[in-house]
Amino acid sequence: MIKLSAIEKYFANKAMKTYVLRNISLEVKQGEFVSVMGPSGSGKTTLLNIVGMLDAPSNGEYYFLDEPVHKMNEKKLTELHKTYIGFVFQSYHLIDELTVYENLEIPLLYQKVSGNDRKGRVAEILDRFNIVAKKDLFPNQLSGGQQQLVAIARAVIAQPKLILADEPTGNLHSEQGTEIMELLKELNRQGTTIIQVTHSETNAAYGNRIVRLKDGWIEKE
């Protein structure tokens, strides 16, 4: 599903290049649950952003479902990532001015899902995540765990093939964290590919493969 070969990322600064990622080659197959680990500044989030097409590599090739991402224009990229990829962030990133219901609706709006269909799917996901009672609340009326729940629901609603999670439990206390990890695992069982960035070995253990980064290199698998 994902094939990275010789990916590099650096920031050119006057005469100096600061490398964030070096010679990353990585393949992720459909249905995997990969945990990316490494110390701060090792390039985990950058790698995730490149996989999620939010950022472009400086060098190297990236194939997503056998299509060459490194050759695509902005429009095609947007198209691809809105259809296949869902994001979950450490700080949830819900739109503060929209209710839970409206936040969930957004990915469907961008996929031009019709009104009735949209209602059905939002209702279904509210039900599935057990947050029907919260649908008219704004994000700041929810606890962190509830917000992350909504964020995952929003990532899932578009039925992506891949979910990218950047320290999804980083801002949560352990009980809530466990719930979220269980949820991701369940999604993986149902067929969604998941790549998560995490500091915690416990969380990494929910996945079936660990990639370790250090100073921009892949250390070992």
Binding site: K82, T83, F87, H93, I95, D96, P107, Y110
Partner: peptide
Amino acid sequence: AKEVGIRKTLGSPRSH
């Protein structure tokens, strides 16, 4: 800015 970032990650083209 945050809203822009979120909408973009959720698939909004810049023109929207």
